[in-house]
Nucleic acid binder design. Structure first.
Lengths: 249, 249
DNA sequence: GTTTATTTGTTCGTATGTATC
DNA sequence: TGATACATACGAACAAATAAA
């Protein structure tokens, strides 16, 4: 645990000691000195650093927890809460558009592509004939250096020849489909479940396998209601929050 | 009974053999190879396929039964439990309407009511003045004998006098609001996150604290866009799947 | 598997300064 | 002036949960 340069509160000031502590810790978090997920020193240790009673530091921590900035579990310590990215899901959900709206440094990395015969459930959703092929794209998305999701997507191979190359070049679903003449597409259905990450997903998402992920199954269709993409995306639940927009259509 | 391609567990790995078996069976179920209601091979047959002792297989099956994935009756064999309930979320989400659509034996149990000063986040969402009171209702919903969710809801107390009694009598949000003259209400926003259940939620949901829950934060407003209900609902992730309807409005 | 130590979160009690009636 | 209420800060102790030895 690196020492954090906290300053002893000024007791002559009018503002209460616990508020000064709250401000200092918040400052460290907001300035990026304390990043999301990082463990704070124990309440007792903080009390020593600030040279106050444990209760006084507790009061500050309570205020921060109330504001949703930190989170404490008995015996597990205090952690800075991962700031959640709001990930809107609506009729025209698009990751690159979402990330662009967030106005942060974001990216999309293609982990692999292949021409496969998809699992039954995928084939049904894409309305593929039995044994018909599909492009399979595995990717992960980043924002500010942190992995947000691990996605798999299937596209009908017959309709989109050499889609893998296009996707490698463009790095986005919307731009890829645009090159095939699909300027707009819509979300047909979205299913959300939660499960434990497990070793495989945890490795990609850089999180504990014992922590949950949000698994989103989705189907995008073109203007003629023809399925163009089946997606299965796992979001790191600590870092992403799904926001369902019901106004959009 | 079709033969299922189970692989013998890897004894050199760090993860226990029974967990590997649990994972393989779960994988088959999740991937759709084993659908809801299908009968599993007998424990003895599974032991032969995995080349392990019958007790090892039983340990894995016990774990799966604990998670509610499979269900065993003496002398009737093991069956894969019916898949998750689809819980639609849209502009006019209503639990009782959802459950009615499922056409199953369902219910809503009021666990407690109180007049409280809500947490900051709730107060802001409900547009309450500082220190203004709200009715707090804690409830849980059932279907076919299984707990599906654990919900908390807050209602502005000033606007809804003695709402607790009405809710106790009607047992539903929509019917309660109807008695106050609100015949229709809309979903303002919905946020979905996942977290581990923890001991408290696990107790109500009758699931393991180490398994995830889907936490849905929602705000309902009336026709004049005035907030009428703030909700925080935890769904047992193994038993419920959220379906986001984007067409409705 | 058991025990020990650590950490959070809670409930008492005490004292002090400040604003208000 | 006196009485009262309130917010702040400190002290001691305990329960529950977890991590480490």
């Amino acid at each position: 645990m690196m020492a954090i340069p906290f300053q002893p509160p000024d007791r002559s000031r009018d503002v209460p000691v616990w508020r000064q502590i709250e401000q200092q810790v918040l400052q460290q978090i907001r300035s990026g000195q304390l990043r999301g997920g990082v463990r704070l020193p124990s309440a007792l240790e903080l009390a020593r650093q600030f040279n106050v009673n444990r209760h006084t530091v507790r009061r500050a921590l309570d205020a921060l927890e109330e504001r949703g900035v930190i989170h404490g579990d008995p015996a597990r310590g205090l952690r800075v809460r991962e700031e959640c990215y709001d990930y809107p899901i609506g009729r025209r959900t698009s990751f690159s558009r979402n990330m662009h709206n967030l106005n942060v440094s974001s990216g999309n990395k293609v982990l692999g592509t292949a021409l496969v015969t998809p699992p039954q459930r995928v084939a049904e959703s894409l309305a593929l004939a039995r044994g018909e092929g599909a492009w399979w794209i595995e990717s992960s998305a980043y924002a500010e250096g942190r992995v947000l999701d691990h996605g798999q997507a299937w596209f009908p191979a017959r309709r989109f020849p050499r889609l893998d190359e296009v996707f490698q070049r463009t790095g986005s679903v919307s731009r890829t489909l645009a090159e095939f003449g699909i300027t707009d597409y819509f979300r047909s259905y979205t299913r959300v479940t939660a499960r434990l990450a497990g070793p495989a997903t945890a490795g990609v998402l850089d999180q504990s396998p014992e922590l949950p992920v949000l698994e989103v199954e989705s189907l995008n269709v073109d203007g003629n209601n023809q399925p163009v993409q089946y997606g299965l995306t796992c979001f790191a639940a600590e870092r992403v929050q799904l926001v369902l927009s019901t106004s959009e259509r």
